[in-house]
Structure formats: structure tokens, C-alpha cells
Design a binder for these strands. Structure first.
Lengths: 146, 146
DNA sequence: CTGTATCCCCTCCGATACTG
DNA sequence: CAGTATCGGAGGGGATACAG
């Protein structure tokens, strides 16, 4: 099965859209996906699931500090976006397994690269935070500071 | 670890932290940075600035739909994190130029890779959205055709 | 032109209680 | 075990007015 493209929807990078002057933030469904992927718990869920299948309470324990409500909501969003696969066995007590889909694995890789870069760059960011404690720079050497 | 690492701050990837069972979301300053970088307007500001220096109202027009308040707040966050450089010329009317720092350029690259991947993958996500209109799968206790 | 200040709605998110 | 339902505080974010 080699479908070339589902629709005539050609993938257009953000930079391209900007060049054409399109609006991006509003009426843009990809904004929702980005929100889910980079949400407070979404990032952590993805990275944990990258290590393999987890059950609900395993995720809850591993992540730590996430409420049942938010974990359930986050998982539903990611499942709905096709990032996470949910398999519920009809047994008592309930047994549900969460894992990444191929799509989710691609997404997680991108998210993790960003997250790891931030972790690695935190010393440089912290340096700026310290410097920002002082008042704003005079900016222009030839004119008076404010 | 063969090297003792000169700085006291050792960069630890998220995956490493997870392996050690550390908490990540709470009391984690990098969470704030991620929030700023992936915020509603942060992503767009970064990608626009990647093309070069822009003035305040240039950014506002290019992005489109952002309020003065939120653009100013977004720029301040990114400036405070060391991602954006702000140069204010002391003239009337005011003239302020925003551009990416080297740190911001690195961040923007990671963010853009993620954003572009999402744009490119939207057809696959949309397919899941359509499928999610139906009720949840009955879930198979055993193997079943899918 | 480049912002700040104020008001106010709306969403996020934790806490708690309840269900299958 | 794996959720759902409801409440309520905190903060995001738009509209507007105003200042430097």
C-alpha cells in the first residue's frame, strides 16, 4: 500500500507559512497538538513511555506529583492525537496498558531533544536570570541611560 | 563519568533523571523555560526572529493576532531567559530592535524541528481525530483483527 | 512607537469524592 | 486498579485605556 498522500494537504513548515504571511496561531489545529505534546505532564508521559509500555499507576508513580485527573486527561489527549496506544483488558481488577505508537515515538524524539537541550543549557539560562536581577542595561553608549 | 565536570551544575537529561526516579515537573526551573519556548506566542516569536532582527510592531504585524500585552510579555520572558536580545535606541519615537541570541538560535532550531514535524504529521493526526469520533474500541481480551 | 496598568473571562490543574 | 464528577483557586490571555 503506497498511498502518496491522504489528501492534497501538503505539509508546510511554519517558516514557509510565515514567509507567505499566513496566520499561524489562530485557526491552526497543529497548535493543539503542540500544546498536548509540550503540556506539563505530556512531556513526562511521553518520555516515560519511550522506555516501554506502562500501566496507569506505574506512570503515576514514575512521574510523581501528577493527579489521577491530569494523568487521565493527558493520556486521553495523547491517545486522541494518535501518539499513545491504550489497551484495556476486560478483567477484574482493571488492567490497562499504555504505550507509544510509531507516530508517538517520532514526536517523543523531537520533544526529548528539546527537553534535553533545555536541561543541558540551564546553566547559561541561569546566568541570565542572575544578571536580570540588576536593572535594565543602559543600551546606548552615545545617549543617556534611563 | 570519566570527567569530574568543571561546573557545579551538571547537565542531566530528562531520561537520566527518570531512570533515577527524580521528580521532574515540580521544583524544576527548566519547566519554566520550556513553557516560555513553547508558549502560544513564544514559538511564533522565535521562528520570526530566526529570519533576522525585527521591531516590536513588525513582530506584531508578522505574527498577526497577538495583543500588545502578550507580545511584550512573551518578549520579556524570552529576553529574561537569554533567548532574545533587546536593543532600545533612545530616540523619539522609540525604536527597539529584537533579535535572537546564540542561545536563542539553538533553542529555536529545536523548537522549529518540533513545530515543523507537527505540521508535516498533521494528516496522520487528523486521521486519528476522525476515528476518535466513534466510541471507544471494545478492547479485546485476546487477539483480534484490527 | 513601545510599552504598562486594569479589568475580567476562561482554562488549567489540584483536591476530593465517587464508580465500575 | 483505573478512572469520572465536581468544586475552587491561580494564572493565562484578550480588550481597553493610558504613559513615555
Amino acid at each position: 500500500m503506497s498511498r502518496p498522500m491522504p489528501d492534497d494537504e501538503i505539509a508546510v513548515p511554519l517558516s514557509e507559512q510565515l514567509a507567505r504571511g499566513d496566520l499561524l496561531a489562530k485557526n491552526c489545529p497543529s497548535r493543539e497538538v503542540l500544546k498536548h505534546l509540550t503540556s506539563r505532564w505530556g512531556v513526562l508521559v511521553l518520555i516515560v513511555l519511550e522506555r516501554g509500555m506502562h500501566r496507569f499507576s506505574e506512570l503515576r508513580r514514575t512521574i510523581g506529583g501528577v493527579s489521577e485527573r491530569m494523568l487521565a486527561q493527558t493520556l486521553q489527549q495523547l491517545e486522541n492525537d494518535g501518539m499513545v496506544a491504550r489497551v484495556a483488558y476486560q478483567v477484574v481488577p482493571p488492567h490497562v496498558e499504555y504505550s507509544l505508537t510509531p507516530l508517538g515515538r517520532e514526536a517523543t524524539e523531537k520533544v526529548r531533544v528539546l527537553a534535553d537541550w533545555i536541561e543541558m543549557s540551564m546553566p547559561r539560562v541561569s546566568a541570565h536570570w542572575d544578571r536580570s536581577a540588576e536593572p535594565r542595561r543602559p543600551a546606548e553608549p552615545r545617549d543617556s541611560a534611563r
